[in-house]
Simulated assay, not measured.
Amino acid sequence: MPLTPLDIHNKEFGRRLRGYDEDEVNEFLDQVIKDYEALIRENKDMQNQVLGLQEKLNHFMNIEETLSKTIIVAQNAADEVKTNSKKEAQLIVKEAEKNADRIINDSLAKSRSVAIEVEELKKQASIYRTRFRSLVEAQLELLKDESWDSLEDPKRLVAAE
């Protein structure tokens, strides 16, 4: 068990012949008691300070652990968001490709339809042209007919009657 200032104060030494000066010994013991008490107080203050620092250290270690966990959670969330974004982007691209294919197919179908219509119109125009040419040729044949000559000469008209 450690020595206390009270133990030092209450310590009695046996007396002998030609012993030490009692006043000097008592003064020295008083000084030892005073210094020892100061060291004990200082030791208690340091122990309290160590406890306070230990509490702060524990507090900061808890904060560090919490921050580490938070960073891990945030990283996991960021990874998940990134993964989801990639998946969503792929879905958007696939949907856009489907729409593009549909638009291309619709355009090709319309283009074919227009081409068929153009060909039909060309055929109709050719038929119309042929019929018109036939009509014009028939009219020219009528104009070339000599019966028109009789209409031009009034004497022939009367004789024909």
Rank of each mutant, 00 (worst) to 15 (best):
M1Y: 05
T4S: 14
D7S: 02
R18M: 11
G19P: 01
D21E: 15
D21F: 00
E22N: 09
D23M: 05
E24T: 03
E27Q: 13
E27S: 08
F28N: 13
Q31P: 11
Q31A: 11
K34W: 11
Y36A: 02
A38R: 08
N43K: 14
D45H: 13
M46A: 08
N48H: 13
V50M: 13
V50E: 14
Q54R: 08
K56R: 15
N58F: 05
H59Y: 13
F60W: 10
E64K: 13
L67G: 05
T70M: 12
A74V: 06
A77Q: 15
A78Q: 13
A78G: 05
A78T: 07
V81S: 14
A89W: 03
A89N: 04
Q90T: 02
I92Q: 06
K94I: 01
E97N: 12
R102S: 12
D106Y: 07
S107F: 06
L108Y: 08
K110A: 08
S113L: 07
A115Y: 03
K123A: 06
Q124N: 01
A125T: 00
S126D: 13
R129Y: 05
R131V: 08
R133N: 14
L140A: 10
L142M: 12
K144M: 11
S147L: 14
S150V: 15
L151A: 02
